[in-house]
């Protein structure tokens, strides 16, 4: 019994190790995803609206982003847009995470998990 548990833990650890290697392709880990979702809703939300329908910054809904090249949107998130209030977020997210955020925005952003204090 104990032994199987140990094996399980080892297998799990191994998987997490693999997960780190493949994170670039598969996107951030679930816990980090939850953080990113909260960050977008709350902190990006202070300018783009918690529902992302816009505020001082434009709406970030699928229809408002449609047709805009992902790479330039990712660049906007990482480096900001000089001359506008849009700041760069590279201090807080890496390129892969910014890509993940833009993809989610393009397909309709998930709500903050319930109980997460949103």
């Amino acid at each position: 019994m104990d032994r199987t548990l140990v094996v399980h833990v080892l297998v799990l650890l191994g998987l997490t190790g693999l997960g780190v290697v493949t994170a670039q392709a598969a996107g951030p880990e679930p816990a980090r995803r939850a953080e990113l979702v909260r960050m977008v809703r709350q902190d990006c939300g202070s300018c783009h609206g918690m529902t992302l329908k816009g505020g001082l910054g434009p709406a970030l809904l699928p229809e408002s982003l449609a047709g805009k090249p992902s790479a330039s949107l990712v660049a906007t998130v990482m480096s900001g847009r000089p001359g506008t209030p849009m700041p760069g977020w590279s201090r807080f997210v890496n390129e892969a995470e910014a890509e993940w955020i833009i993809q989610r925005l393009q397909e309709g952003f998930p709500p903050v998990a319930l109980g997460a204090g949103s």
Binding site: D43, S46, C47, L56, G80, P82, P85, P87, G88, R91
Partner: peptide, 8 residues
């Protein structure tokens, strides 16, 4: 330096 502003 035009520091980034994360919230107005």
């Amino acid at each position: 330096e035009k520091l980034p502003v994360y919230k107005m």
